[in-house]
Design a protein around this nucleic acid. Structure first.
Lengths: 213, 213
DNA sequence: ACCATTGGATAGTACTCCTATCCTACAAGC
DNA sequence: GCTTGTAGGATAGGAGTACTATCCAATGGT
């Protein structure tokens, strides 16, 4: 398979494929001679992954690069695949941040019986709790506990990402799309729940109590 | 207060303020003469709102324009303030989408006893459910119910946005920052919960079951 | 041998969010 | 009254992202 064929099969323009090659998102094909290269099904798969991460999950090229690099490092062993899924989680859910520590985070972990181990997710939670305090958004431990219990009940459900995906690229795409879709679903469900509560409480009016009027 | 003073008070460069004026994000000041205008505290407030929406919530200028326009239409009555909060919710949580209808959405609303009324949030949920089906992300009703119950338990908590904010601009900023921070908190909590479940289940390894190796 | 194609590289486009600069009128001090 | 300086309007430029179009020499199939 050469460039034109790869382009047609993936529905990505030849120029865009060249662009991805230059950007390091796509491995170069096997060089046949100085001006020709052959691409295989792995390139098609990678292109599908890139397109999915780009247009379904909405990641930028820099973020896609992170996932693709992790993918190229992984060899298919369970350890490295778990590591890969961790990279995907932190990239899709934008967990990156400086290392922070908060008492509230520890309290939640202890209370829910979650393993007391450092992780990017835990650090992101801590960093966000600190940011909320900085931004002056009040948050008591009872609220946090409610969030944690809700998250705990959800978390048992959507881990079955790893059905029977033949390639790591497909696994990565399924995992990323699944994480993105589920997290967005939770957000939207939350929005509807809030709107519903507001309507039920105030009958569509009188939401404000302490305002003028 | 003239441009330079407004700039110093708001910590926004004079050129940026001019840019916001051109973009319609900031109302023009009271014209003193053809080349001079006076700005009041409402301009300072508006700038603080813009900066907060831009850098804390991470909205684009187009989205900020939507909120600012809703703000300028609102007169402080309860109805219009509720409407304003709806606009803020749908902008901050990115709920906009085409009108869709799904049976799952109706089932959730019925089951949770939420009022059976159309809303942007409900529509966004329906649209997202349809998108998940299209993307091939499996989702059974039991999972959806778990999400809904979790959302329901959370929703009762963070509606107390409307403490005693003297101006609509301050109310809008507090509401937007609160919604953003809480939704991100839920996402991060969910990530930690998932990571914790994974560690607890697999002891940090053997996450994969149906893969090679 | 020939002509289209390949792949490499450079430059340009579209979009967003500013920032720098220029210009002219006006205000205030002397 | 005159100079100096600042306001405010407008235009152009700049940085970042994600492509897209074009050019070109080497080459492969016919």
């Amino acid at each position: 398979m050469q460039l034109a064929e790869l382009s047609k099969a993936s529905e990505v323009s030849a120029t865009s494929i060249k662009f991805y090659l230059r950007s390091g998102l796509l491995q170069p094909g096997a060089r046949l001679n100085p001006t020709r290269a052959a691409y295989g099904p792995e390139h098609l798969q990678r292109l599908r992954l890139i397109q999915g991460l780009r247009h379904v999950v909405g990641l930028g090229l820099r973020e896609i690069t992170i996932i693709v690099d992790a993918l190229d490092k992984a060899d298919g062993s369970a350890e490295q695949t778990l590591e890969l899924l961790g990279v995907i989680q932190s990239t899709v859910l934008k967990l990156q941040g400086p290392e922070v520590h908060t008492v509230e985070g520890d309290a939640v972990v202890a209370e829910l019986g979650w393993p007391d181990e450092p992780s990017e997710a835990r650090n992101a939670l801590n960093a966000h709790l600190a940011a909320m305090t900085t931004a002056g958004v009040s948050l008591d431990l009872a609220t946090l506990r409610t969030y944690a219990v809700a998250a705990d009940s959800i978390a048992g459900l959507d881990l079955d990402i790893t059905g029977s995906k033949p390639t790591l690229d497909e696994l990565a795409l399924t995992a990323a799309v699944g994480m993105h879709m589920h997290s967005q679903l939770v957000l939207k469900m939350l929005a509807l729940a809030q709107a519903s509560h507001a309507i039920r409480r105030y009958g569509g009016r009188d939401l404000l109590r302490g305002t003028e009027e």
